[in-house]
Write a protein that binds this DNA or RNA. Sequence first.
DNA 1: TTGATTTGTTCACAATAGATACAAATCTGG
DNA 2: CCAGATTTGTATCTATTGTGAACAAATCAA
Lengths: 394, 394
Amino acid sequence: MQRFTDKKADQVTVRRLNMAAILKLLRERGTLARADLAKELGMTRNTASNIVTDLLTAGLVVETEFRRVGAGRPGLLLELAHNGGFAIGAEIDISRIIVVAVDFKGKTLWRESAQINPKQAQTEIIATAEKLVRDALDWGNGENLKPLGIGVGLAGLVDAEGGTLVYAPTLGWKNLPLKQMWEKQFSVPVYLSNEANTAALGYYNYADRSKAQNLAYLSIGVGMAAGLMLEGHLFGGTGGFAGQAGHMKIRPDGEPCSCGDHGCWITEVGLTALSRKTGGQPVKPDETAQALRDGDAQLTAVVAEMAEMLGIGIVNFINLFNFDTVILGGAMRPILPFMLEKARSVVDQRALKHPRANVRIKVSGRDDDSVFGAACLVLDSIMNDPIPLVRSMI
Amino acid sequence: MQRFTDKKADQVTVRRLNMAAILKLLRERGTLARADLAKELGMTRNTASNIVTDLLTAGLVVETEFRRVGAGRPGLLLELAHNGGFAIGAEIDISRIIVVAVDFKGKTLWRESAQINPKQAQTEIIATAEKLVRDALDWGNGENLKPLGIGVGLAGLVDAEGGTLVYAPTLGWKNLPLKQMWEKQFSVPVYLSNEANTAALGYYNYADRSKAQNLAYLSIGVGMAAGLMLEGHLFGGTGGFAGQAGHMKIRPDGEPCSCGDHGCWITEVGLTALSRKTGGQPVKPDETAQALRDGDAQLTAVVAEMAEMLGIGIVNFINLFNFDTVILGGAMRPILPFMLEKARSVVDQRALKHPRANVRIKVSGRDDDSVFGAACLVLDSIMNDPIPLVRSMI
DNA sequence: TTGATTTGTTCACAATAGATACAAATCTGG
DNA sequence: CCAGATTTGTATCTATTGTGAACAAATCAA
């Protein structure tokens, strides 16, 4: 958490900020010459060149080819080094564990998953996750890549600073110091966050950042959490518990909720609500989507009603946060496209004119935003402070 | 708005950050010696001393007395200079205009107000405000204080970057480029913001900042807006329109609202709702508070019901933002103490355990948070980048 | 082919913080 | 009351880093 007095700065701070700016600009644009970096960031070619020299030595950046365009000496193009190291992303969900390995350019190169059962013992599930992480580390070792860290997205309340899973209702876990456990076991930095936060970060990392500075990622499944990206940074609130969208009261006298209260959004929208409204059977999202495609009339009506309530909740998000982007995803993703149009029209009718004017509402096109975003926790921490890594490689 | 690529840094950046850190620490602590500043901020005494020399020369800081405590040479205490300049804060409301002059230490030294009528022409109201601002400038001139700028809190949607009042429903104003107008007229920097935002900033500036990093200031009157202070910074969202709390849907099939929709929070909580629920007469908050003190049973029941809806909305705020502080204020302030206990108990019962654990809900103890906060817009901008002012005075 | 243009590097310089040393001012223990 | 310890503020030198000007290299265009 940011402190209330600002921290001091020294010359290393300057280098850190400029190095971070160069790395992020390269991530943004793909390839650029030294002169481009300098022009774009308003520094001298000299400074850009000095920093690039360090990044080349550290192996985080590579020179590729000359760019011949117009008069003048051609610039030697630079890009992030594929083999600058790799990040591991892990997602522990109610039904499965996914682990990916992502190279320094943000490309997912390795992926493995395992089904789990929430009735399994915690130690057993953790052991399964640890095996997958170890496989990822072994893979990277075989590829001769340096492991940069492990990011973990968890479905529950996470104390990111303390590195603890505080409470995961679906799994029934409490106070698990996963950061400490895994840093000891794997000897690399470990970053924890809520899976909706990592999903937001994952989306942000392949979205047009200039258009998604204020983004909500609504992860809708059995529960519903919102990952909040505000002004380009994940927002966690005082204890890191922000984004508990599912328990927004939307109909104060509504249905009872698993949280002990009633009228929560999640009682109207999500897989549990859908199950209740369709007769009590657990919902299999893919099968439900197929039934909708096949034109099941009763199901279509239920989903339309749910879309209306989805839209109303999104209206609240837009009025409160003035987002530019709202992304819908999570386990319910196959069903969400059938709700999108209705939800958008509710927003058009019921949200305030000015906040709604520039908002884009989409269903995520990918299934792995969250686990990819978990890996991005690692990459972002290096982008934001590359100095320790660079100095250690020189 | 923060850009998506970070800006470069140079040596001046370092000086700016350190100078800002020293000024903010002095604001926080009142008096400190050079050695204290250095120790507290982790810099050398040398650096602190250099910066203090500049601040003394610029007149932003003064030396007061020696501090004799324990062994060793006594430290020469420093504090912000009362006469480092003064900021003007202005609030244009539906019924009144208030203008204050605040010295560099944040003390309000001058205040004037004028009643207005929303039926008056815009030019007339603006002229009234301009007269008050000119009076404030004259006062400062008489006191031999340098004018640092004008901060304005407006009841409506404000484009802070563009310096435009986009839409003020209660006054019926649209697209007023007040920043441009007043900067031309008064030749000092002008900062615009929503009055709920300035109220949040005002509260923050006399609160314990370490305990109020994530603060919502609910300004409840005829309308209802929330000033959002997130991680110590005002949050405005993509267009600066965040915090439209009054139009959060809390009962989707509820009462019609002036926004054209229905079921908004403001249809249940606020002066308009209170008027409707008590027979249609306009509410005078002070008289209503007196009636409540006198034990008016019917009114008490209406207010209790309203307190319940107030609490439910606050629950949503807490679940979504994980605030540490929620402050209630605005035109309805005299009535709010009669609603506080009930609202708190609703939060205790209905908010999620973890987000609600460390939240403080209070009615503001002051009536002038907003106009004071408007002046703080000016002071904060100097605290955050004192270099131009300091360099211009050396 | 010659001049213009652009790139990347080199070198001297400026701004800034850090390290060390030191004088000044106070306290404490005998 | 005095000698040593302690703390403060400053002076001096050094290290880091960015800037500006100059220059060689590489390309294009007339």
